[in-house]
């Protein structure tokens, strides 16, 4: 069976949820091999998880150079693998960095690239949403080794057993790939809540929340549901909540089972980041707010009354 390369998303070997989704999607096209690029020890940590989602092989490229420079080293190592193995396809996560790795790989291998993929068929055709989720298209690659950047949370990860046999690969990085040096990494805390892009429930607040202090109301509802917290751009621009929690065109794209929008009007740029959520709930005092066009369930009312009451009721039901 044809080999399909999957670039593993991980944090020092701790595998991110999207990787299971990528391995699942890859199985439609052939036999998935996981490529773990990162610091020494990453592949060993990742191995068990990758086996659970059907990785037959693990290519381990461990070197400080991978994270020491921006994007280019990963693309170089992947391009070499593509040349050596002639895989049927390469799958990466459609994160900002994943898309950049894919872009450089596409140039190096003269291959077509499809981004924000939400499904992959056995014949290689991919589903994509475009124009802020307003249109659904089916696309295919015409040149080279198809490269798919797959959107997190779009595909349900299905476990399958894989041999996960490890093969170490050499990481030799060219001078031009060392042009941009990463000198510092700063993690802005999200506490114990799930990661926004991967969470199955997201509770978001907008300008209507009114202040950074008031965001506690949103956090409390999120915590009662085990959810991640998101924010509209009006909320992040006003300093109510840190920018990395922004949902929308210029923030994160989320596709959770449940999205709760509180005090958010539903501008097109916000919708772009949450439109594909399975169930959408809105709380807004303006009955004409466009967010209600998307909502499966909407409460027209003051969020300062509705949200704390909902939180209390949920906590009461859980107790």
């Amino acid at each position: 069976m044809a080999e399909v390369l999957v670039l593993v998303e991980h944090d020092n070997g701790v595998v991110k949820k999207v990787t299971g989704e990528l391995l699942t999607a890859a199985r439609a096209l052939g036999e998935p091999s996981a490529v773990v690029l990162g610091a020494a020890g990453s592949a060993a940590t990742a191995s068990a998880r990758l086996a659970e989602f059907g990785a037959e092989k693990i290519y381990a490229g461990e070197s400080a150079d991978i994270d020491g420079y921006v994007v280019a080293p990963k693309a170089e190592v992947l391009a070499r693998l593509v040349r050596d193995l002639a895989p049927a396809a390469v799958l990466v996560a459609a994160t900002s960095e994943g898309k950049e790795v894919a872009g450089r790989l596409a140039v190096k291998t003269e291959s077509g690239l499809l981004t924000d993929v939400t499904s992959i068929d056995a014949d290689g055709t991919a589903g994509q949403t475009i124009f802020a989720g307003g249109m659904l298209v089916k696309s295919r690659v015409r040149t080279g080794t198809p490269i798919y950047a797959v959107r997190p949370n779009a595909i349900t990860a299905v476990p399958a057993t894989g041999a996960a046999s490890r093969q170490d690969i050499e990481v030799s990085v060219s001078d031009s790939a060392r042009a941009a040096t990463v000198t510092e990494r700063v993690v802005e805390a999200r506490g114990s809540r799930p990661e926004l892009a991967e969470a199955s429930i997201v509770v978001s607040g907008g300008r209507g929340v009114g202040s950074a202090d008031n965001f506690k109301i949103i956090e409390s509802l999120a915590d009662s549901l085990g959810a991640a917290v998101g924010a509209s751009r009006a909320a992040t621009d006003s300093g109510f909540y840190p920018h990395q929690f922004q949902v929308g065109q210029t923030g994160k794209t989320v596709s959770p089972q449940l999205y709760v929008a509180c005090g958010i009007s539903g501008a097109i740029q916000h919708r772009a980041g949450m439109q594909t959520s399975k169930t959408i709930v809105a709380v807004n005092k303006d009955p004409e707010a466009p967010i209600f066009e998307l909502a499966d369930f909407g409460i027209v009312g003051d969020l300062f009354a509705v949200v704390p009451q909902a939180t209390d009721e949920i906590n009461r039901r859980k107790a």
Binding site: V283, V300, A305, V306, Q309, A310, I314
Partner: peptide, 19 residues
């Protein structure tokens, strides 16, 4: 979808929908 005005029990209704 369903859109209902808050008549004092909007939060409870919301929790019921989620449950």
């Amino acid at each position: 979808g369903v859109k209902i005005p808050d008549e004092g029990d909007g939060g409870v209704k919301l929790a019921e929908f989620l449950a």
